[in-house]
Design a protein around this nucleic acid. Structure first.
Length: 580
DNA sequence: GCCGTTTTCGGCCCGACTGTTTTCAGTCG
């Protein structure tokens, strides 16, 4: 049983316990533990095998550790069986509906025997739900909508997609009288790979709030207004994206910006810290606990952090991954930026499945100020992408020669995205690999192998002495394909051992590695290549989203292969004697 | 159920909005 399954079971258990009416703090304890487990890079099975003490993990105590061991040993959990004997499993789906929480789910179940989304739909049609105490026509209508939404679009929006949808709304709000500042907070500001909704904050005098709110909900792309109060309004756009607007006075704008930027876990830690100092933090400001007087801070984020004795922390770091301690100790990372980037090491051309020529790509890289780049078309096994045979690869080298003389200002490396075959061997023989300036390796097939076999397969590829970079290491496609089952921790450790770099694929649909794996890579001291995998010149701009992700993983320029100066990069590239 | 600069018991973040309530529960972020 892998970490995801274990987390899912415990999370389900939390939902069901909540519906059963358990102590809320017990529920929270389960959810805290789940959060820790989802952040692990190492399989729990491996940790247990190595005799590690699971209670060392944040939020995991004696009981949780024994639940985990039970799931690993038997694939089942007695407590979950016991709870599901009483509370139907499908109720956990019901509480995912907007407007349905544990209390309502329980009532629907106990009084109407509704336990699934489908049954709820029927019960609403039969007009049985309005008969319940606490369920008026409005809340029933809300549930009906939630069911439709649930069917239409599950999952979150890619950050880039949300940005596209948001741009016209921001334009709509521009120049509205009274708005002094307008910013996006939430996971969007933290540069998360996907966002569930958008939090907009407007700084404006309170007497302007009604007209601002009115203007907000009148945006043409609004499908419906979910709520609209004095300081807070929520709309859903036609594309399904929910947008919240909060209107704030100057005195609490910074506190609100901090609060609504989150993450929730970061906020909880900040509040705990504040309490220890006799302070209370809310979205309205920082207050002394005893008196209910004026706030100590609130107008700016800097003030809020300062009030609890911390320097300002970048939003990308606010995930409760140790940023508060680092801030306290003055060891916050100096995060990598686009200015640090000197090259792009993964891209395709018309020679395989790319849309632009080698020279076009070279000019586009040069125009971005890069000093080096690598042409890395697919190898022959990836037939759907017109992968190159050794013969065509040789022809391509002639074309690269031509491009080199045509675009002299940039160093063009000949590379390849060499397929890792089913058994972990590489798609080109060693004598071909030896002629390449840079060898990238990747998995494009056999996603269905079990975790142990998949891990072994990739480890074998990493052991090959000519491999430089493992690209898109987990194969995930956001909202479309889960990562293949693989022990990422083992991959990272092997990459370190064999002096192989790992890629952070910057394509916004991939962002592979995940930020928590990048964080681990940093801890281990691995080198990371942030690369676009561009299939046309315009996609070279993916570097931006890759760097957002890199920053979320705490990466500094020193961790990034393609932030090296040309000389340093040459030294790294030729670190093994078989290459010159 | 977890945790400890309040340390083995007694806490555990805080407030807005809605709906169906006649004073507040439920949900959400």
């Amino acid at each position: 049983m892998d970490n995801t399954e274990i987390s899912d079971r415990l999370s389900e258990l939390a939902d069901l316990l909540e519906i059963r009416g358990a102590n809320p703090f017990r529920i929270r304890a389960y959810r805290n533990a789940v959060r820790t487990l989802r952040g692990l890079t190492r399989p729990l099975s491996a940790m247990v095998e190595d005799g590690e003490d699971l209670t060392e993990l944040q939020g995991v105590g004696k009981d949780m550790a024994s639940h985990i061991r039970e799931l690993l040993d038997t694939g089942e959990l007695e407590l979950l069986e016991e709870v599901t004997a009483e509370v139907p499993r499908s109720l956990a789906q019901l509480v995912r509906l907007d407007g349905v929480g544990p209390k309502k789910a329980r009532k629907l179940w106990k009084e109407l025997e509704v336990t699934t989304v489908d049954e709820l739909e029927v019960a609403i049609e039969d007009d049985r739900v309005t008969a319940l105490e606490g369920f008026g026509p409005k809340s029933v209508e809300k549930m009906a909508r939630a069911i439709r939404d649930h069917r239409k679009h599950q999952g979150r929006f890619l950050r880039t997609r949300a940005a596209e949808l948001l741009a016209p709304l921001l334009e709509h709000m521009e120049g509205v009288e009274g708005i002094e500042r307008l910013e996006v907070a939430g996971s969007f500001r933290r540069r998360a790979e996907t966002v569930g909704d958008i939090d907009l904050l407007a700084l404006a005098p309170p007497d302007r709030a009604p007209t601002i709110m009115e203007h907000f909900v009148s945006f043409p792309d609004v499908d419906r207004v979910e709520m609209s109060g004095e300081t807070r309004g929520t709309v859903r756009l036609r594309a399904g994206l929910q947008v919240d607007l909060r209107i704030l006075p100057e005195s609490s704008y910074g506190a609100a910006l901090h609060y609504f930027t989150g993450s929730k876990e970061h906020n909880v830690e900040i509040r705990k810290r504040a309490r220890q100092q006799g302070l209370k933090v809310s979205e309205y400001g920082v207050f002394r606990e005893e008196e209910d007087g004026d706030p100590v801070a609130g107008a700016t984020e800097e003030e809020v952090f300062q009030a609890v004795g911390l320097p300002w922390i970048e939003p990308v770091l606010r995930e409760d991954r140790g940023e508060i301690r680092a801030a306290d100790e003055g060891t916050l990372p100096s995060l990598v930026t686009l200015e640090d980037i000197r090259g792009d090491l993964h891209m395709h051309t018309t020679w395989s499945d790319g849309k632009d020529s080698i020279a076009d790509m070279a000019r586009a890289c040069r125009d971005r100020g890069y000093a080096y780049m690598s042409i890395s078309d697919h190898s022959r096994a990836v037939t759907v992408a017109r992968g190159l045979t050794p013969e065509r690869l040789q022809e391509q080298w002639e074309a690269i020669e031509e491009a080199r003389s045509e675009v002299e200002e940039i160093r063009i490396l000949r590379s390849s995205e060499v397929d890792i075959l089913g058994d972990g061997t590489l798609d080109f023989p060693d004598e071909v690999l030896a002629e390449l300036d840079l060898v990238l390796v990747a998995v494009h097939s056999h996603f269905g192998l079990d975790q142990a076999t998949q891990t072994k397969r990739i480890l074998r590829a990493l052991e090959h002495p000519m491999v430089d970079i493992l690209v898109h290491p987990t194969g995930r496609l956001l909202n479309r394909r889960e990562p293949y089952p693989v022990d990422v921790e083992a991959l990272l450790e092997a990459a370190l051992e064999h002096d192989v770099a790992v890629e952070l694929n910057a394509n916004p649909r991939r962002l592979d590695l995940h930020d928590r794996h990048l964080f681990r890579a940093r801890e281990l001291g691995l080198r990371v290549s942030v690369a676009t995998d561009a299939h046309r010149t315009s996609q070279l701009d993916y570097m931006g989203s890759g760097l957002e992700q890199a920053r979320r993983g705490w990466l500094e320029a020193g961790h990034v292969v393609n932030a090296m100066t040309p000389d340093a990069f040459e030294t790294w590239r030729t670190r093994r004697d078989h290459r010159s």
